[in-house]
Design a protein around this nucleic acid. Structure first.
Lengths: 121, 121
DNA sequence: TCCTTGAATAGACAGTCATCAAAACAGTAC
DNA sequence: GTACTGTTTTGATGACTGTCTATTCAAGGA
């Protein structure tokens, strides 16, 4: 589980949008992340996990917050996982998810022109 | 032109993702913005406009950067316009677009936990 | 071992979206 | 007015996506 794209998605990206025009490749990479967040259920999942005590939440906690079936929640978690935004870990019966704050931070930095110049590394 | 959702889309949104769980309504509002950015062509358009000299770019400048037809570019610009991310203004023969940096800034603030506490309008 | 519960996968279906060609609209110049 | 250029709208089409039910997998307890 969680073997796909740890956070490699951000490797090439990017100086802030308003500094330099994105290359086609950078745009594709970035769009993958935005696409992962472009759904209300996934945004709420992300927010629930990120704001949960201890920085992680088990799927059982998440399912109750939605009027969606388990498989649908599971599908959305997979999309978030494959985009590199979260990771999941099974501990006994339950699976716990936590966010990758660095990915959110870099995404955030891309949107505002002010800070840090070119975000390499 | 550009009469739709000036930047009302952000009115209710939001404290940072990691601070409080998003409500269903907040998630829907936010997802509209992310959806608008969840396409490589639109991200590049946004970046081209934002980074263009004078803070604005005419459609003719934008079209050349893509291997897409005029109508397709126009469609993407409309999506960005309706999401409140950009505005367009006709001056004579050409139409000029510019970004709404405040919207990008608020979106950016939602992603990182650190700053500014609850972002109420 | 078998059964129960939590979670993920498989497959299907309806709705949405990106793209294009063709047509329409907006300005300018003749 | 007519012709021409730049931009948007319309309508169609193929691909993708969110959701479901049914099934399978994983772990624990009887």
């Amino acid at each position: 589980m969680s073997k796909q794209l740890p956070l490699a998605a951000m490797d090439a990206c990017c100086s802030p949008l308003a500094r330099d025009p994105l290359t086609a490749e950078q745009a594709i990479e970035l769009s993958r992340l935005f696409k992962a967040m472009a759904d209300p259920a996934r945004l709420r999942l992300l927010s629930l996990i990120a704001s949960h005590a201890g920085g992680e939440a088990c799927v059982c906690d998440l399912t109750d917050a939605f009027e969606l079936t388990g498989p649908t929640i599971s599908h959305h978690l997979k999309v978030l996982r494959e985009s590199g935004l979260i990771t999941g870990e099974r501990r006994g019966t339950w699976v716990y998810y936590r966010v990758h704050p660095e990915v959110l931070a870099r995404l955030s930095a891309v949107l505002v022109p002010g800070e840090s110049g070119v975000v390499t590394a």
